[in-house]
């Protein structure tokens, strides 16, 4: 029974960071309508911002969260304005090739600047443990989960309760009509893409605490984020948390209960994508 509970907790906590990465991606897909393959590289930049501030100025990664979000918002806004905006009317394949190119370019810039080595920050709380009865879990994953839920709650509130949020949702639903009502579509896109990158940056800071900073740190999480948004339905922000929990629980159960399951973890998200797409096609037919 303890093992089952521990597995459930492990899965749910892992879902926090997954949801954080995936919600940014869902925002880019849902509002701007672009599949951003460079989303993981925004997380990588966040991880390096955290690492550099820690090494250069001794700033704790938790304090870097806000700065990393701001930096990534600016990076996202510049990327949108300079690169994404010109291809918005282009075929989807062109858009995907562009974001794939941005991903490769950002990874290689990081390689040139920092090399291929793995770098770690050092905080007093990285190994901190919370114990409840016979169950124990890490404080950083728990904090990442709480942060993720909080940020996503704030995002839902913003989208559901504010005029700007209404405008974002309007643009997500129809690209032309909001313009007729005086909503600046391009500014909404810029805001959404910037927010998407900022969320990735925050996830990157958490990754620097829980894992490491390296040019490739974002890649694995991009793949998982794609599985999550496919499961949630492309652009469906409300489906992100349940989908992230489903994926993380599936991974935790496979790891714990399938012999040699640790090696199968990465296959789980492919299975999730396969099942979600097949089931959706079957339901529509």
């Amino acid at each position: 029974m303890d093992l089952l509970l521990q597995t459930l907790i492990n899965g749910i906590l892992a879902a926090g960071i997954y949801a954080l990465v995936a919600s940014g991606l869902a925002l880019a897909v849902g509002v701007v309508g672009i599949v951003n393959f460079a989303h993981g590289e925004f997380s990588m930049i966040g991880a390096f911002v955290s690492y550099l501030l820690f090494v250069g100025a001794g700033i704790d990664p938790l304090i870097s969260l806000g700065l990393a979000a701001l930096v990534l918002f600016v990076v996202g806004a510049i990327t949108y304005y300079g690169l994404i905006r010109p291809v918005l009317a282009a075929p989807e394949l062109n858009q995907m090739l562009l974001t794939f190119g941005i991903s490769v370019a950002l990874q290689n810039i990081a390689l040139l600047l920092f090399g291929a080595d793995t770098r770690v920050v050092s905080t007093s709380y990285q190994g901190a443990t919370i114990t409840l009865g016979g169950i124990s879990f890490g404080a950083p994953p728990f904090a990442a989960f709480v942060l993720s839920v909080g940020l996503l709650g704030a995002l839902y509130w913003f989208l559901g309760k504010t005029r700007l949020g209404f405008a974002v949702r309007a643009v997500a639903q129809n690209r032309l009509a909001p313009g007729l009502l005086g909503i600046e579509t391009q500014q909404i896109y810029l805001l959404a893409f910037g927010l998407s990158a900022a969320l990735a940056g925050i996830a990157g800071v958490m990754l620097s605490v829980m894992l490491y900073a390296s040019p490739t740190v974002g890649f694995a999480y991009t793949l998982k984020a794609f599985a999550i948004i496919v499961m949630a339905g492309l652009g469906n922000l409300r489906g992100v948390v349940p989908a992230a929990i489903t994926l993380a629980l599936a991974e935790a159960f496979v790891s714990t209960y399938v012999p040699g399951g640790g090696g199968w973890v990465e296959a789980v998200f492919f299975l999730v994508i396969f099942v979600a797409l097949t089931w959706r096609s079957w339901r529509l037919s």
Binding site: L3, Q6, N10, A14, A220, A252, S255, T256, G262
Partner: peptide, 20 residues
């Protein structure tokens, strides 16, 4: 002996199983 996927950062499940 247990395999894992390098770079995944997910070890809690395997380590939990190893507790016994």
């Amino acid at each position: 002996a247990e395999p894992f996927k390098s770079g995944s950062g997910s070890f809690t499940a395997i380590l939990t199983r190893l507790k016994s």
